[in-house]
Design a protein around this nucleic acid. Structure first.
Lengths: 112, 112
DNA sequence: AGATATAGTATCCAAAAAGATACTATTGGA
DNA sequence: TCCAATAGTATCTTTTTGGATACTATATCT
């Protein structure tokens, strides 16, 4: 059997999740609920405005988060997880769980 | 609450899985069992030897796959998934499942 | 009139990931 | 003696991703 990355579903799922700040943003919105742009910017230590906007836009494009613009001045924009975005929660949770075990395992194997 | 990517377990789990060919290699070894370097190279259409070696080494370093070298000439090397690597299967399976739903959903929303 | 607050853009630069391509060691067999 | 087979290395280039930093629009408040 011959295969290419483009035909791999896991590869595609990963490409949606990957991005330096995407998992964090998703987890954050999943647990904290609605947040404004500025709040996210404060919470995500070290993120640049360009990156924040970029990651939010990409998540929005996949339908995972919602962007609500209030027509005020100064502007107010609220981000929240969509119902659809919540379908990722079990996967993120199991990755979180696996990662913790993995780190534990690494420590155990570092007897040197 | 303030957060950084380095403190996010999901981020870390992803970084182990990410790499253009890693998910494919894992899935392949999970389903096909043991494979030689040359067999993998033939199966993974378009991969360069450098990339193949690189991805295999990184997976091996995490303990997910096994490298068995037979001291023959010409050399013979067999790769297989480890028992530990198999603990990732449920996660990969759910990502596969999610990705399929996601594509279906995208098609439905493309009525334009 | 000028400062303030918010949610971004725009531009340029650095680092990381991936691709192309050629090369190597070894030894059993023709 | 020279070639084939296998599992890689080595080197250079391109592409992708992320970082630094400065700038903008605009109604309101003083």
């Amino acid at each position: 059997m011959k295969i290419k990355p483009e035909y791999c579903n896991v590869h595609d799922a990963l490409s949606i999740l990957v991005g330096k700040w995407k998992p964090i943003i998703l987890l954050y919105l999943m647990s904290e609920g609605t947040m404004r742009y500025g709040e996210l910017k404060k919470a995500l230590v070290g993120i640049t405005p360009k990156m924040l906007t970029n990651q939010l836009r990409e998540l929005e494009e996949e339908g995972l988060i919602n962007r609500k613009l209030y027509p005020e001045v100064p502007p107010k924009v609220e981000y929240s997880i969509t119902e659809y975005g919540m379908t990722l929660k079990p996967i993120l949770d199991s990755m979180h769980e696996w990662s913790m075990q993995h780190k534990k395992r690494k420590l155990e194997n570092t007897i040197d």
